[in-house]
Design a binder for these strands. Structure first.
Lengths: 193, 193
DNA sequence: TGGGTATTAGTCAATTCTGACTAATACGGA
DNA sequence: TCCGTATTAGTCAGAATTGACTAATACCCA
């Protein structure tokens, strides 16, 4: 059970994110490939841009590694389906990836919100804990950025950094207020979930 | 002179961005490969994560396509250098890519600020025009996002979209205030540049 | 009957990116 | 003298992603 899916080299972040996405989709319910891809294309297109061949490849890998299981089934005379289900080791991996993803501060992007989307799978306390950690890291990043000396020179690196800083600050504010909201919800409706 | 560098398929956005980066670096002055890569690694690491082999490959392509020229030179008994210079067709491409990049609204990311970094290469009016277009597009995106019906369901897609929305709004605000600042500067010091 | 779209499952080649490596010289300090 | 770091230029295989494609059935509309 490694948190980055068995691959030797290369862009771990993306795999973790996309693995998390597929595992999360399978946490909802068992699904066959077509269904998964349709769902991603129709409902999650704003949150990810993963394409079909990538999904199939990842599903294969996850299956090889035992994080999901596959069985074939026939619905009428429709083409045969391959139904994927998450295994218990897959669930463990899912929670691991989810916590890591949620606590990761370095993503203020379109594609970085896979974890947020799965927030409901954690109990409120864990969710809040992860987001708090993310908030801390984000604050650290901001502190650090505030101490970068101005760059000068022909390229306006400083302008780009200022932009990044503005976005990170907004990210922090959003995060802080989201945490507050979660805490309020928890106080309103204790022990549910 | 195509704006996306001669490649048939595949991730045009990244190439354009990285091509823009290299061309921009060469706009400052002629440089040899080692110098370019050192500069990127030391000074631009916060704005891009392009690695050496990628840079070499792109330089080769740009050279093949005639956007930059190469000549060898010897400095003392140091290893021979390959010095790259931007050609006039390269400059044309540079400005094209720069305007496109600046006017593109869909990037609120770490890596999306290559264009901003090169803002100085445009005269103030053009720069402002590009950023205005970006602002318009961003507003359109925001309007559209505001009209996406709530998603519901087991995944909290809405939370993720809310996050994205918050960031986009911050992006817009930053952009608007940056434009105002540029306009003020233009009024203060007309005709310089 | 014929043609288009939906359902289901893929595959394959092309492309990009990068970690890790090689090579050869020079220079500075122990 | 020897070792490490700097200077300079790459290369190469491995990994990830995806556009475009194939295949076969079913259902619907004209």
């Amino acid at each position: 059970m490694r948190s980055s899916l068995d691959r030797p080299q290369s862009d771990a972040a993306n795999w973790d994110e996309r693995g998390l996405l597929l595992l999360g989709v399978l946490m909802m319910q068992d699904q066959h490939g077509y269904q998964i891809n349709e769902f991603i294309e129709r409902s999650l297109c704003r949150v990810t841009s993963m394409k079909k061949p990538t999904a199939y490849a990842l599903l294969d890998r996850l299956a090889d590694a035992g994080y999901i299981s596959v069985h074939r089934e026939q619905a009428g005379s429709r083409p045969q389906r391959k139904v994927y289900s998450i295994t218990s080791s897959g669930q463990t991996l899912f929670y691991e990836l989810l916590r890591t993803n949620l606590a990761d501060a370095s993503k203020a992007t379109d594609e970085g919100d896979i974890g947020l989307m799965m927030l409901n799978y954690l109990d409120r306390e864990s969710a809040i804990a992860c987001l708090r950690e993310r908030l801390n890291r984000l604050d650290a990043l901001l502190d650090e950025a505030a101490n970068v000396p101005p760059h000068g020179g022909k390229l306006s690196v400083d302008l780009a950094l200022d932009h990044l800083l503005a976005i990170r600050r907004a990210d922090r504010d959003w995060l802080a207020s989201t945490i507050r909201r979660l805490e309020r919800d928890a106080a309103d409706a204790p022990d549910i979930e």
